[in-house]
């Protein structure tokens, strides 16, 4: 993970060419775009896990949702903040009320709402289940974010990687972007595994304490 990050940041900050229109500001993209991908991918994973936990009552699925939520919230915040840094020189404004930006902001509030809800019950299991319902309901926001740039005429640029007829981005820029995305994914997997381990240990410690009386 550390190697991927070092390599990705080296490629992004030094080895890749500046954009012919945007100059060096384009480098913000290597932090911004993977963060946006992760923000959506984590929410999608949480929604799937919430369904699994709700239907089959798999205990690990609900714990995964809880473990992933703060990480997803931070990625969303990184995406919003770096997007804002990029928007200042490029669009001339820190924030525009554009469909893509607004729907990502709602995604952030969904993450925060889940964290708040899942912690507000005396019985932690009840909080997890209530949170799972919220996560499932909020999943409707994901297609809105994805297609917001196509449904509405927005300032945010449309998809340029996953599109019919191959990516529009030049390989010299696509390469560092994908390395950074892989680094982000590894970071998420590492963090979520650690958080899950901690949650399981906490649960076991509580059971021991209760068993001892």
């Amino acid at each position: 993970m550390v190697i991927l990050f070092a390599w990705g940041l080296y490629l992004a900050l030094w080895a890749s060419p500046p954009d012919y229109q945007q100059g060096d500001t384009v480098r913000i993209m290597y932090v911004h775009v993977p963060a946006a991908w992760m923000a959506m991918a984590i929410y999608a994973a949480m929604a799937v896990a919430a369904v699994i936990g709700f239907v089959w009552r798999h205990p690990l699925a609900e714990l995964f949702v809880q473990a992933a939520a703060p990480i997803g919230a931070v990625f969303t915040a990184v995406c919003l903040v770096t997007g804002s840094f990029w928007g200042r020189p490029m669009w001339g404004a820190w924030w525009v009320w554009d469909a893509r930006l607004t729907s990502v902001l709602i995604l952030f509030f969904l993450y925060v709402g889940y964290i708040e809800l899942s912690r507000s019950f005396d019985d932690p299991a009840k909080g997890l289940r209530a949170g799972a319902i919220l996560v499932m309901a909020g999943a409707i926001n994901l297609p809105i974010i994805k297609f917001s740039v196509e449904w509405w005429n927005t300032l945010h640029q449309p998809a340029s990687i996953l599109r019919m007829g191959g990516p529009l981005v030049d390989p010299s820029m696509l390469h560092p972007l994908l390395v950074m995305a892989a680094a982000y994914l590894c970071l998420f997997v590492t963090l979520v595994t650690m958080r899950l381990e901690t949650a399981l240990l906490q649960r076991r410690a509580r059971q021991r304490r209760l068993a001892r009386g």
């Binding site: 509030f109 507000s120 909080g127």
Partner: peptide
Amino acid sequence: LMAGSRRGGLTIAL
């Protein structure tokens, strides 16, 4: 969703 939780109005607003 919030019925039975300790926190009331503000969390519902959030």
